[in-house]
Every structure is written in structure tokens, then in C-alpha cells.
């Protein structure tokens, strides 16, 4: 059978799915991300979920904030690529060196404590020197807020979740949203 382009893609997708089941997409060529690696995405999911956690409304992870950040790192935030690569690596190294655990493996409360130290700029170790801890924390915090509360067109705020949570009708249907059809319109 002739291997058409369409069929090649179909096979690739099958292969990717199979691989994922076995070793969690360790092959970078099959990663669904634009800039971050699959390993980084797991860590980033945990970090952004700390910034905007799930409560009665979905949190940052389910709103696609990791996807937003990955999108931007491959685009307008390409200037932050090195910072993310380094910051994510150093967080994981700090966790595994001190506690023999990956960040994602800590309890939610333990993760919160870790981020508070990061925010306060009180991380030990040369790798965190020159205020890199605070700097990286604020970058993740700001980008998480943008991804969760900004326009869904950038890859976050999935299903307009933050707008729904804040009781803002969206998308704005121009003019129409001005009229409350159930009352006298006041």
C-alpha cells in the first residue's frame, strides 16, 4: 500500500498514543507542547494550580494555563524561555536534592509552603542567587493570572471559565448584552 501523507499522519498519531501509554511521552518529538517538555509540563501544571487552585470552580490546570504559558513561550514570551527552563530545572533539583521527591509528589500544602519561600526570596543555594527565586515566582504568578483571566484566544481560560466564575457574560454580543429581556430593561 502506498504510504500517503494522510495515512502517515494517522499512523504517527497511533504511534504517539501508544508510546504515551507506555512511557508518558518521553520522546520530545511526540510532545504535545511547543516549548516545554512533558516533564516540565507536569511541574508547571502543579505550579500554576498553586497560583489559582481548584475550588468550586476549575483551577489553573484545568483552565489550560500551562498551555497558555507554553504558547507564549513559543511566541511573544520567547524572551523568557531561558528563565523558565532554568527555573523549572532548579525547582525540581531543589526538591529532589533536599527531599528526594519531585515537586508534583509533595502534598498541596507542602507545595504552597515551598512557593511561599520562593516568593519571599528565601531559597538557599547559589542557583537561586541574585533574587532569581522571587523573580521566577512573580513571572509564574503573573503569567498564570494572564492565562486564567485573559482572553481564551491565547490558549488559557478554557471555556471562559474565569469569566463565568466572575459572572461576566462572554463573549460580548455587541449591543445585545445591554438588554435584559426578562425585565423592563432597567
Amino acid at each position: 500500500m502506498k504510504l500517503t501523507r494522510r495515512r502517515f499522519i494517522a499512523l504517527s498519531v497511533l504511534a504517539a498514543g501508544g508510546t504515551c501509554l507506555l512511557n508518558r511521552c518521553a520522546n520530545p518529538a511526540l510532545s504535545p507542547w511547543r516549548f516545554i517538555t512533558v516533564g516540565e509540563s507536569n511541574l508547571l501544571d502543579a505550579l500554576v494550580e498553586q497560583i489559582i487552585p481548584t475550588d468550586e470552580w476549575p483551577g489553573a490546570r484545568d483552565a489550560g494555563v500551562t498551555n497558555f504559558i507554553d504558547n507564549q513561550l513559543a511566541g511573544v514570551y520567547s524572551r523568557y524561555q531561558e528563565t523558565y527552563r532554568r527555573g523549572l530545572r532548579v525547582i525540581q533539583e531543589t526538591c529532589t536534592t533536599k527531599f528526594q521527591k519531585r515537586f508534583e509528589e509533595f502534598s498541596f500544602e507542602e507545595q504552597t509552603q515551598f512557593l511561599k519561600i520562593l516568593e519571599a526570596g528565601k531559597m538557599d543555594g547559589l542557583q537561586w542567587g541574585n533574587g532569581f527565586d522571587r523573580h521566577f515566582f512573580h513571572l509564574i504568578r503573573d503569567h498564570s493570572m494572564q492565562g486564567f483571566y485573559g482572553s481564551p484566544r491565547h490558549g488559557g481560560n478554557r471555556n471562559n471559565v474565569s469569566y463565568k466564575m466572575m459572572k461576566l457574560d462572554y463573549p460580548v454580543i455587541i449591543g445585545q448584552n445591554r438588554y435584559n429581556l426578562k425585565s423592563d430593561g432597567k
Partner: peptide
């Protein structure tokens, strides 16, 4: 940031 920040956003916007 965190849960308290999100709650403020929801209740007070």
C-alpha cells in the same frame, strides 16, 4: 495568589 486571591476575585469583582 492562591485560593484566597481567587475567592476575592469571584466575590468582589
Amino acid at each position: 495568589w492562591g485560593k484566597e486571591h481567587k475567592t476575592f476575585q469571584r466575590l468582589n469583582f
